[in-house]
């Protein structure tokens, strides 16, 4: 069985927590992997929403962020789309290298990639799809120790 739903989120950082709660609350099949879902998916979705609001939409309160969620027995995915011009995700540097470790920013996208099974952008760079597989995926502990 597959469930899909869409959230239209105002471009307001205060809306992130509630939006994440709404998505997580609709994902009943994810309870079997509580920690991966609680930590990995929640963190990644919150980071994607913050990036969309701050950088994609440039903190413009008149813009919105759209979240398309699909949940089935195999995976949960969320496509987060802002109304900005997009960016090049490959241009974002690794924040864990010695020269970047003291930089205050640049960890959001890194965390998304570390915590999820798949993160992919559209060509324009204003839409990111986050995928957490619910079966046959690397465990969080394996990812954390890699």
């Amino acid at each position: 069985m597959e469930t899909t739903f869409v959230l239209e989120v105002p471009n307001d950082l205060r809306a992130i927590e509630r939006a994440v709660d709404l998505v997580v609350g609709r994902c009943q099949t994810c309870e079997s992997q509580a920690r991966r879902f609680r930590l990995n998916f929640r963190v990644a979705l919150a980071e994607a929403l913050a990036n969309a609001m701050l950088y994609g939409n440039g903190s413009d309160p008149h813009k919105r962020v759209r979240v398309d969620v699909t949940v089935n027995d195999a995976e949960v995915s969320a496509r987060v789309t802002d109304q900005g011009a997009g960016f090049d995700p490959d241009a974002v540097e690794d924040p864990t290298t010695p020269e970047n470790l003291m930089r205050p920013g640049g960890r959001g996208l890194f965390l998304m990639r570390q915590l999820l099974d798949e993160v992919r952008f559209n060509d324009r760079g204003n839409s990111v799809t986050l995928i957490l597989r619910l079966e046959e995926s690397a465990s969080f502990d394996e990812a954390a120790s890699a």
């Binding site: 963190v43 919150a46 980071e47 913050a50 930089r103 205050p104 920013g105 960890r107």
Partner: peptide, 9 residues
């Protein structure tokens, strides 16, 4: 979140 981590750094 990553912004909070950034503030601590």
């Amino acid at each position: 979140d990553s912004s909070g981590l950034g503030v601590l750094v």
